[in-house]
Nucleic acid binder design. Structure first.
Length: 341
DNA sequence: AAGCACGGCAACCGCTCCCGT
DNA sequence: GACGGGAGCGGTTGCCGTGCT
C-alpha cells in the first residue's frame, strides 16, 4: 500500500514561481514563521502550491542572506574537500558555507567542480600515459615480451591493504581530525569528557542525547570508525583487523563517490591510481606525493593522515556493521594514530 | 537569421528519517 | 513496539539562456 500524497496533486501548481507567489510566501513567513507545518502553510496563505514546494522555495531562494553564484576559490576547496570526505551530503556541506544552499552547491558541483576535477585528471592521465608509453617503448627495444602488457587496455589498480589518505599532515586541511571535531561540535555533537578522562582515546567522542539528526550520529560513527581505521597495522589486534578488512572490501564501492559520472568518465577513473590523482590541484603537490608514499606498503601506514578522507556513506554503513560486532573499546587505545604526525 | 547543442539552474520526485500518537 | 504523517535530503528532470554552426 503506497502512502497518501502530501497534497492534492491535481489542484497544485507546478513550475516556476511568480513574483506574486514569492511575495505572498515571503511576507507570511517573515511575519508568522513557518508554524512548523509546511503542508498546511500554502492553504493558510492561499497559494496553490505543495507544502514541500513552498519549503524549497523559501530555503533556496526567499530566505534572507542567500548568496547565488560567484563561488570563491576557498568555497571550491571546501566543497571539494568535504565531498571527497563525506560524499554528496549537500546539506552538511552547505552548513559550512554561510548563505549557500544545498541545492546551489549540488548544482555547482554537478555543473562546474566535477568537470574541473575531471579535466585536471584527464590532462595528467594523458601526460602519464605518454610517459609510460615512451618508457615501455624504450624498454621493449632492448627486452620485448609480447602480450605482457597492453597499454590500450584499462586496468584496475591493485588495491592496497588499506586505503591511503589523500591529505598530508604537513598543512592544515579542512578534514583534519580537529576540523571534523569542531564541525561536529558546531553541528550539535559533544566530545565526551569522561572518555577523555578515562584515557580511552583522545579523539573518541560521543554525541549528547539531545542530538537527534541522523547525520550527527552518522558522523559520530564515521569519525570514530575511520579514526580507528588509521591505526597502524602493527598495533592493532585481530578484532580490529575486521575493520581493515571492511575497508578493503569496500574500497571498490567507495569509488561510487564519483557516482553520476558517465561510462567514459568511469573508465578514466579505472586508470587512476588509488591516491586520487588530480587532487593535488586542490591540496597541493606535496599532499599528493605524500599519499603516494603512504600507499607503497602497509607497514608504512603509520605516516598516514586521516583516512576519513576516503569515506563514503556506503563504506560507513559497512563499517558500522563491522563496528557493531566488535567491542568499541578495542578500537580506542593509546597506540592509535589520530591526525597529524 | 535560424536551428541546434549544450550548460546552468530552479523545481520536482521519491525516498528515508524522525517524532508524535 | 507499530504506525502514520511531516520534514528533510539527494537525485533527477525540464526549462531557459547562450554560444556555435
Amino acid at each position: 500500500m503506497g502512502r497518501a500524497p502530501c497534497c492534492d496533486k491535481a489542484n497544485v501548481k507546478k513550475g516556476p514561481w511568480s513574483p506574486e507567489e514569492d511575495t505572498k510566501l515571503k511576507a507570511y513567513i517573515e511575519q508568522n514563521g513557518t508554524g512548523g507545518n509546511w503542508i498546511a502553510l500554502p492553504q493558510k496563505i492561499g497559494l496553490k502550491r505543495c507544502g514541500k514546494s513552498c519549503r524549497l522555495r523559501w530555503l533556496n531562494y526567499l530566505r534572507p542572506n542567500i548568496k547565488h553564484g560567484g563561488f570563491s576559490e576557498e568555497e571550491d576547496n571546501i566543497i571539494c574537500s568535504l565531498y571527497i570526505s563525506i560524499g554528496s551530503r549537500w546539506s552538511i556541506i552547505a552548513a559550512q558555507l554561510p548563505g549557500r544552499t544545498d541545492n546551489d552547491i549540488k548544482n555547482y558541483w554537478n555543473t562546474r567542480l566535477k568537470k574541473k576535477l575531471l579535466g585536471k585528471q584527464r590532462k595528467e592521465q594523458q601526460a602519464r600515459r605518454a610517459a609510460v608509453k615512451q618508457e615501455m617503448k624504450t624498454e621493449s627495444e632492448s627486452f620485448a615480451v609480447p602480450g605482457v602488457l597492453n597499454l590500450e587496455t584499462p586496468y584496475w589498480p591493485e588495491l592496497p591493504a588499506v586505503i591511503p589518505p589523500i591529505y598530508s599532515s604537513q598543512e592544515p586541511s579542512i578534514m583534519d581530525q580537529e576540523y571534523i571535531r569542531s564541525l561536529l561540535i558546531k553541528l550539535g555533537g559533544r566530545f565526551s569528557d569522561e572518555l577523555e578522562e578515562s584515557n580511552i582515546s583522545s579523539s573518541k567522542y560521543t554525541l549528547d542525547g539531545s542530538c537527534s539528526t541522523r547525520d550527527h550520529q552518522l558522523y559520530a560513527n564515521s569519525v570514530d570508525i575511520l579514526s580507528s581505521a588509521a591505526t597502524p597495522l602493527n598495533s592493532i589486534d585481530s578484532k580490529s583487523s575486521q575493520l581493515h578488512n571492511a575497508i578493503y572490501n569496500s574500497a571498490e564501492s567507495s569509488l561510487s563517490m564519483f557516482g553520476g559520472l558517465s561510462t567514459v568518465e568511469l573508465e578514466e577513473l579505472a586508470y587512476r591510481t588509488p591516491e586520487l590523482e588530480g587532487l593535488e590541484s586542490f591540496y597541493g603537490m606535496d599532499m599528493a606525493n605524500s599519499s603516494s608514499a603512504g600507499a607503497s606498503t602497509t607497514t608504512e601506514s603509520t605516516s598516514w593522515g586521516n583516512t576519513s578522507s576516503m569515506v563514503y556513506p556506503q563504506l560507513t554503513s559497512e563499517l558500522e556493521t563491522c563496528f557493531q560486532s566488535v567491542p568499541q573499546d578495542s578500537f580506542f587505545t593509546d597506540s592509535m594514530y589520530f591526525g597529524p604526525q
